[in-house]
Amino acid sequence: ELVLALYDYQEKSPREVTMKKGDILTLLNSTNKDWWKVEVNDRQGFVPASYVKKLD
């Protein structure tokens, strides 16, 4: 499943990933309501769920 980055996000820990507004990311896990695991540029990590939106 793919998600769209709604905002820029700068990683604050090694478990997170940086994304730019408009990026298309692969959603790996959305079981946590606050932090979703995504893959971007061959890196996996977490981003705030409120910063991304699922693409239909």
Rank of each mutant, 00 (worst) to 15 (best):
E1D: 12
E1Q: 15
E1A: 13
L2G: 03
L2E: 06
L2K: 15
L4I: 15
L6I: 11
D8S: 09
D8R: 03
D8M: 03
D8L: 02
Y9G: 00
Y9Q: 00
Y9F: 07
Y9K: 00
Y9W: 12
Y9C: 02
Q10G: 07
Q10R: 13
Q10M: 13
Q10T: 14
E11D: 05
E11W: 05
K12L: 09
K12Y: 06
S13V: 05
S13A: 10
S13N: 13
S13M: 08
P14G: 10
R15S: 14
R15Y: 14
R15I: 14
R15F: 13
E16Y: 05
E16V: 05
T18E: 05
M19I: 15
M19Y: 02
K20L: 09
K20P: 00
K21C: 08
K21V: 07
K21P: 03
G22Y: 05
G22A: 03
G22Q: 03
D23H: 05
D23Y: 05
L25R: 00
L25F: 07
L25K: 00
L27N: 00
L27G: 01
L27Y: 02
L27M: 04
L28K: 06
L28Q: 03
N29T: 08
N29C: 10
N29R: 05
S30H: 09
S30N: 09
T31P: 04
T31G: 12
T31W: 09
N32W: 07
K33H: 12
K33P: 14
K33M: 11
K33N: 12
D34P: 02
D34R: 12
D34K: 13
W35N: 02
W35M: 05
W36G: 01
K37C: 13
K37D: 04
K37G: 05
V38N: 00
V38W: 00
E39I: 12
N41P: 10
N41T: 09
N41I: 12
N41E: 13
D42M: 12
D42S: 13
Q44I: 14
Q44T: 11
Q44R: 11
Q44L: 07
G45P: 01
G45Y: 04
G45W: 04
F46Y: 15
F46V: 07
F46T: 03
V47E: 01
V47N: 00
P48A: 02
P48G: 01
A49I: 03
A49L: 02
S50K: 14
S50L: 09
S50G: 11
S50E: 10
Y51K: 07
V52P: 01
V52S: 00
K53H: 10
L55F: 10
L55R: 04
L55V: 11
